[in-house]
Computed example of a mutant assay.
Amino acid sequence: MCRLMTPKLEEALKGFPLYSQDGKFGEAICCAIFVIGQVRWFIIEGEREGNDLTMFGIVIGLMEDEYGYVSLNEMSGIEIDLAKRGLGKGKLQVTQLQNFEPKPLKEINDIRLKRFLARFED
């Protein structure tokens, strides 16, 4: 398993296999949040597939905010070389917010996430 797989992540995703929160929108439980720079992945479901974890959630901060699937192994391999961008030394990697406790998406204080979820309200 990759560097992002932790016992806390496995525990948070128990009871939330793929498709288990389909159609819940803001009521869906966010199990984990991953970040790199201004990009955030709000993970609501996940299932092991071989030596990987396929997760489903909302990504905010890329070209378009959207629902989608993401591989934990692929996410673990994302790196931004700061030196190539003239921003100093080192690399920026995706990390998991360690202090986050699972809660409904609608309770997360993120303005772009709230705007995204508002598109699905009646």
Rank of each mutant, 00 (worst) to 15 (best):
1 M>P: 09
2 C>S: 15
2 C>W: 02
3 R>N: 08
3 R>S: 05
3 R>P: 06
5 M>C: 09
6 T>S: 14
6 T>D: 04
7 P>E: 00
8 K>L: 03
8 K>T: 06
9 L>Y: 04
10 E>Y: 05
10 E>S: 05
11 E>D: 12
12 A>W: 05
13 L>A: 00
14 K>E: 03
14 K>F: 01
14 K>I: 00
15 G>F: 00
15 G>P: 12
15 G>C: 03
15 G>I: 00
15 G>M: 00
19 Y>E: 05
22 D>T: 14
23 G>C: 02
23 G>V: 00
24 K>D: 02
24 K>I: 00
25 F>Q: 08
25 F>Y: 15
25 F>D: 13
27 E>P: 08
29 I>D: 07
30 C>R: 04
31 C>P: 07
31 C>N: 07
32 A>I: 02
33 I>S: 02
33 I>L: 06
33 I>F: 02
34 F>A: 04
35 V>F: 04
35 V>T: 14
37 G>D: 03
38 Q>P: 10
39 V>S: 13
39 V>G: 07
40 R>Y: 09
41 W>D: 09
41 W>E: 06
42 F>K: 11
42 F>V: 06
43 I>E: 08
43 I>T: 13
44 I>Q: 14
44 I>A: 08
44 I>N: 14
45 E>G: 13
46 G>P: 14
47 E>Y: 05
48 R>M: 01
49 E>F: 14
50 G>V: 01
50 G>D: 11
51 N>K: 15
52 D>G: 12
53 L>V: 15
53 L>W: 12
54 T>R: 10
54 T>M: 12
55 M>Q: 07
56 F>R: 11
57 G>W: 01
57 G>F: 00
58 I>D: 08
59 V>Q: 15
60 I>Q: 13
60 I>N: 15
61 G>N: 07
64 E>S: 11
64 E>A: 05
65 D>I: 01
66 E>C: 15
66 E>V: 15
68 G>K: 08
68 G>A: 01
69 Y>L: 11
69 Y>R: 09
69 Y>Q: 07
70 V>P: 06
70 V>W: 02
71 S>F: 00
73 N>E: 09
75 M>Y: 03
77 G>K: 11
78 I>S: 09
79 E>Q: 10
79 E>Y: 05
80 I>H: 06
80 I>Q: 10
81 D>Q: 10
82 L>Y: 06
82 L>P: 10
82 L>F: 05
85 R>N: 12
87 L>S: 03
88 G>R: 11
89 K>Y: 04
90 G>Q: 08
91 K>P: 05
94 V>G: 01
94 V>Y: 03
95 T>M: 07
95 T>A: 06
97 L>E: 14
97 L>C: 05
98 Q>G: 13
98 Q>N: 10
98 Q>F: 03
99 N>W: 06
100 F>G: 02
101 E>Y: 09
101 E>N: 05
102 P>L: 00
102 P>F: 00
103 K>R: 15
106 K>C: 06
107 E>L: 06
107 E>D: 14
108 I>T: 03
108 I>D: 08
109 N>C: 09
110 D>P: 12
110 D>Q: 11
113 L>M: 11
120 F>M: 08
